[in-house]
């Protein structure tokens, strides 16, 4: 320290810059953390800010179709929360949120009921079979999501594969009306999001120490009971992770209700699209989008909290 204060000879430029950066609070460690923060700021926070700003604007016939966001003209001439008030006044929004949440919640439960046994089965397979089965789970992602949903239209159509098959079997006399029903929507959502349930569950179940089940059996616990008192509680972090990964995107799902759900399926994703493209009401579309975000922040926070807790436990 003493030598440093005495020595006044100029440092090389690189070192000088480094010194200044450190004094400003930028250390190499900060630089590493800086990258994700920068990314999130640029691609999430800034666009979100624009959306938020638009939600306070007013529709006008112009290009873009809302009052300017910045500058002297940006002072709102209407009440600031007008758009948000409309959200509560018109029941269409409330209904759309409710149906979306219902669709997401029920689909999540169905995904869990189908995905858990699948994940469990894969996790208990021989390692070579395991990777093959996992491949089969991931394989659909190699095809466009849109094409897969269209394929379901082909299956569920009145003249579709399923109806023809059932007619051929003689189970039904006349084709069933499957497409453009809530059932089709559920099939689409469960089918599309099932891998997101299976993969985290698999990751969790695969780690589980099999000797715990042996210990349970050794202490007199039958295998079925051991599953419910040992395996299920221990896989809870996997259940939470998988459910969040299904629930959150399913709430805002647009393509599946649009293609499979028929005109009456009023989902929040469609409401946003209608406001945005058909009504050209960008501010209202922004309000609806922000409300979805607020609605989803709660489960995300819960997810985060739970994940942190389980990580602490593992440490």
């Amino acid at each position: 320290m003493a030598a440093e204060t005495v020595d006044h000879s100029p440092l090389p430029l690189g070192r000088q810059i480094q010194h200044i950066l450190v004094k400003l609070g930028f250390r190499p460690r900060t630089a590493v953390i800086f990258v994700p923060y920068f990314w999130l700021t640029l691609f999430f926070l800034v666009p979100f800010f624009f959306v938020l700003k638009i939600s306070f604007a007013q529709t006008i016939i112009a290009q873009p179709p809302y009052t300017p966001l910045f500058g002297p003209d940006s002072v709102p001439t209407h009440e600031l929360l007008d758009n948000f008030r409309r959200l509560f006044q018109d029941t269409i929004y409330f209904d759309a949120y409710l149906t979306s949440l219902q669709l997401a919640a029920i689909s999540t439960v169905i995904c869990l009921l189908i995905g858990y046994p699948m994940a469990y089965g894969i996790a208990r397979c021989a390692p070579s079979t395991r990777s093959l089965l996992l491949m089969a789970i991931i394989l659909p992602f190699w095809t466009s999501f849109l094409i897969r949903v269209y394929a379901w239209m082909g299956i569920l159509n009145t003249n579709g594969v399923l109806n023809n098959f059932l007619l051929w079997l003689g189970v039904i006399d006349a084709p069933l009306n499957l497409l453009y029903t809530p059932l089709a929507m559920y099939i689409g959502v469960v089918y599309s999001y099932l891998p997101f349930m299976i993969l985290p569950l698999y990751a969790n179940l695969e780690k589980m120490d099999v000797s715990l089940l042996e210990a349970a059996a050794d202490l007199g616990c039958r295998p079925i009971k051991a599953f419910f008192v040992i395996t299920v509680p221990l896989s809870f972090p996997g259940i939470v992770a998988g459910s969040m990964l299904v629930f959150i995107p399913a709430v805002g799902e647009y393509v599946i209700p649009e293609l499979l759900g028929g005109p009456n399926a009023l989902m929040i994703g469609r409401v946003v699209w209608n406001e945005f493209a058909q009504n050209r009401d960008w501010p209202m579309a922004s309000v609806v989008a922000i409300a979805v975000l607020a609605l989803l922040v709660v489960p995300i926070m819960f997810f985060q909290y739970y994940q942190n807790k389980s990580q602490e436990r593992a440490a």
Partner: peptide
């Protein structure tokens, strides 16, 4: 005779304690 009906108990090399249960719950499980 399956493990859960045998008159044996085993202490595992890895101990195989149930991580989500307290000491008391672990011991009372059997």
């Amino acid at each position: 005779i399956p493990p859960y009906e045998r008159p044996t108990n085993m202490m595992f090399q890895s101990y195989a304690l149930f991580p989500h249960m307290t000491v008391e719950q672990n011991v009372s499980f059997g």
